[in-house]
Nucleic acid binder design. Structure first.
Lengths: 257, 257
DNA sequence: CGTGACATTGACTAGTATCAACCAAAGTGG
DNA sequence: CCACTTTGGTTGATACTAGTCAATGTCACG
């Protein structure tokens, strides 16, 4: 291994040598440059990371990784939405989460993928060989720290999803989802509700939604219809939902007051 | 910040000074010495970590942290079992996981606890002020790496639990739980089934089990009774279960073959 | 032996799944 | 350009799993 010198903090001559390589340019116009992992590095250091990356694109519906397959790569998403899922042998499927720009796939320290990932729309990623990325981590502890932040945040989301799946009713699940998606995509200040009439663009089919919420598509459809009937939302199109009364949705989502 | 020297690998004079302090002795006979976080450090370095710790014990049922309260501490469990849970305002509760010797609480990088933790039996922990532990992390990157491993493993478990909560039937949930608990507590070689007649000791009440599996206590009870009736398990006592046919349980748990 | 906490079992109900019909939008091909 | 098909979504009728309510059982403890 390369040893850290005790002299001035210039970390790796290597990074400097690559500063003007074509790879560096790739990052400049990348949608994920200031998101997720990449955001933890300086332009200079990023070139070092970029050296280990291969750009790759996936079509809508194309599998990125398959549960149970040998875990050969890590992925960092540059653009697009990805769904993560686990399935039972008889085909029942649970979507465990969604990943988009700046998110990181393949965290699990296992030799097999523990879940599947599929592009939900045209998606570009940076793909890393596991050994080479591990080597990069050795050099940049900031990356590992960032990864820890990401993982703990995912864990918090997972716990909330467990509460939803284990204890909420169908309509509560749908209301919770709508607000969470608004918080994720839209711009509602951290911890606050989206403003009335916020327009959501869902890249999800009803099937995805059902598999995420632990319901059937029929129940999802009925729940959405009921929310519309009761004036909480409008459904201008299959993939568009307007939150007419976020406050009311929040009330349903938490079953409180 | 302190700079790493390039000379011999003696890391911090501080640690050496404390090597014979009373705290060091505490770790020697700690059940968690070679588990979780502590396992990532040498005896010498551990004294440094121990300096930041306060030992504390909790009675069965006593809350260790409360969802929504200010997140003041991290905890490392030395002995005992702890349940982690989230609740809805109307009282519905979801247990998101269990923690025992060597497990770490308070990972979330939030100023409020995102879940509650309660001792399920007499439990001892090392408690750390968040700022002081953060400082320790700065000095020992091995700890952060270990924490990342822990967090990603938790994430894998969480995903499996989501699949269980969202898609499995009551009896599948119970069968899955029994096998998972056997793998956790007992000694079935990684990825294998426990041997027939493995005796489980559950420190859980039926209520805990129900809140973990997203069911009611009645349904848990009925499912266990059915598994017993069908010869898969025996129930010698409230907190004891014998796995008569682990293979059969696995079959039910995955709904396959 | 009585009391209380916890677990089991039974009868009934409610919420969601299943099955099926219908609908709308987007291709597709003559 | 317009039937025809395909795909995905909605709505309705019915079934079934798990929840609710209630009675009974078991065990530990005073």
């Amino acid at each position: 291994m390369v040893h850290v010198t005790n002299a001035p903090p210039a970390r790796r001559p290597l990074a400097i040598n690559l500063a003007n390589s074509p790879r560096a340019a790739q990052c400049d116009d990348c949608g994920a440059r200031h998101a997720g992992l990449c955001d933890a590095l300086s332009d200079e250091d990023l070139t070092f990371l970029a050296r280990a990356a291969q750009r790759r694109t996936y079509q809508a519906g194309e599998p990125i990784m398959q549960e149970g397959d040998k875990a050969a790569y890590f992925f960092n998403i540059n653009s697009g939405h990805v769904r993560l899922s686990k399935s039972l042998p008889d085909g029942r499927r649970q979507i465990t989460g969604f990943a988009s720009t700046g998110h990181f796939l393949g965290l699990a320290k296992s030799d097999k993928n523990v879940c599947s990932a599929e592009a939900m729309e045209p998606t570009t990623v940076c793909r890393f060989n596991r050994p080479s990325l591990m080597a990069v981590f050795e050099e940049f502890p900031a990356l590992e720290r960032k990864l820890l932040d990401v993982a703990t945040h995912e864990l918090v989301l997972a716990q909330e999803q467990m509460l939803l799946l284990g204890r909420k009713t169908a309509i509560e699940r749908v209301a919770t989802f709508l607000l969470a998606w608004a918080a994720r995509e839209d711009l509602c200040p951290a911890g606050h509700l989206p403003k009335p009439n916020a327009a959501l663009q869902l890249p999800l089919s009803r099937t995805d939604l059902a598999d995420y919420l632990g319901l059937t598509i029929e129940t999802v459809s009925r729940s959405l219809s009921q929310l519309k009937r009761d004036g909480f939302i409008d459904i201008p199109g299959i993939h568009g939902i307007t939150l007419l009364k976020p406050q009311g949705l929040a009330h349903i989502a938490e079953a409180e007051l």
